[in-house]
Simulated assay, not measured.
Amino acid sequence: MEQREIEIFLTLADELHFGRAAARLHVSTARVSQTIKKLERRVGAPLFERTSRRVGLTPLGRGLRDELGPAYQQIRAAVDAAVAAGHGTSETLRVGFIGAASGRFVLEVARAFRAEYPDCAVALVENQFGGGLGPLRAHEIDMVLATVPPRGARQVELTAGSVLLEEDQLLAVSARHRFARRSSVSFSDVARTTILRTPPAISDYWDQTLIPQRTPDGRPVERGPTFETSQEMLALVGAGVGSYPVSAQFTSYYARPDVAYVPIHDAPPYQRRFLWCSAAETTTIRAFDRVAVALARAHTA
């Protein structure tokens, strides 16, 4: 197998979506499809199960991913280390994060990265929710750990790293709301509440993909006031002004007596990944993402 074939296979195995894999690799969807078909002909059996609704790995595909993945990451690490040594890398990598849980993980990655690349400094930068991807696009930071909406929010000028963490979706509601007494709600139940709005700076990235105008059964979703920060959102929720979908980390880091977190049982999980500007990608950024992937896998092993 050629390096590009391995890269395409592993990326599709990570994304399980031909369009997203193509966008991440900066190639056409047809290129990804053709490469996978070529590999399957060579292997003699399907590596992926494809339907009109989903893409999944076959048992053979999972085995190939598990065998190739660590070896490919080791090769990438060796190349990155050689490039860093050859260029005398001593830059400061500015890594953004939003929220306490993300900050804790980024700090762990930074420690592991510094152990491997002692000449490269890492500056952690806390971003406010309302700022969206503004600091990244303004080149105030080099990369940011972001909770990516389940329906994608892929943008042409951005590169998304591998999935590091997945978290269930919860609906934050007032502790006095009737949903607070439920064990779970459906995504269609969202239309029975007023959903708060995200700040304009991130509406294109987050809000338009997270909250559709209508639920799957056709009901319009009523929208409420706009919030700028996570704490402001929770204050509005606690006051009964509206509700908002959040990730599972909120139960540990943002517990409040006036807010209840109810699982949305039919919603796909959120994915946390590093994002960076494609045009500004460097060997150091790729190396930091690689260290993050290894650390995330160690946590789930």
Rank of each mutant, 00 (worst) to 15 (best):
R182T: 03
R182W: 06
R182D: 07
R182M: 07
S183G: 10
S184E: 10
S184G: 04
V185Q: 06
V185H: 03
S186W: 02
S186V: 04
S186C: 09
S186Y: 03
S186E: 08
F187Y: 11
S188N: 15
S188F: 03
D189T: 03
D189S: 07
V190A: 06
V190I: 12
A191D: 04
A191P: 04
A191T: 02
R192G: 14
R192Y: 01
T193Y: 00
T193F: 00
T194W: 01
T194I: 04
T194P: 00
I195P: 02
L196F: 02
R197K: 12
T198C: 10
T198A: 14
P199K: 11
P199H: 15
P200Q: 11
P200K: 12
A201F: 01
I202H: 01
I202S: 07
Y205K: 08
Y205N: 05
W206F: 12
D207I: 05
D207R: 01
D207Q: 11
Q208L: 13
T209D: 14
T209M: 13
T209F: 14
L210W: 13
L210T: 11
L210R: 14
P212D: 06
R214S: 10
T215Y: 00
P216K: 04
D217M: 09
D217E: 12
G218R: 13
G218Y: 08
G218C: 11
R219Y: 09
R219D: 13
P220F: 03
P220Y: 06
P220G: 07
E222D: 03
R223L: 00
R223D: 05
R223C: 00
G224A: 07
T226P: 07
T226C: 11
T226I: 13
F227C: 02
F227P: 00
E228V: 10
T229N: 01
T229P: 06
S230K: 10
S230D: 12
S230T: 12
S230F: 02
Q231L: 15
Q231I: 12
Q231P: 04
Q231A: 15
E232I: 03
E232Q: 11
L234D: 08
L236A: 09
L236Q: 01
L236Y: 07
L236E: 03
V237W: 00
V237L: 06
V237R: 04
V237C: 04
G238S: 09
G238H: 08
A239G: 13
G240V: 11
G240S: 12
G240I: 02
V241S: 07
V241W: 05
V241D: 06
G242K: 01
S243A: 15
S243W: 00
S243L: 05
Y244A: 09
Y244E: 13
P245M: 14
P245L: 14
V246H: 05
F250W: 15
F250V: 14
F250P: 08
F250I: 12
F250E: 05
T251Q: 15
T251G: 08
S252G: 10
S252V: 13
S252P: 06
Y253T: 15
Y253S: 15
Y254F: 15
Y254I: 08
Y254V: 09
R256P: 06
P257F: 00
P257I: 04
P257D: 13
P257S: 14
D258R: 03
D258K: 02
D258Y: 05
D258W: 05
A260M: 08
A260V: 04
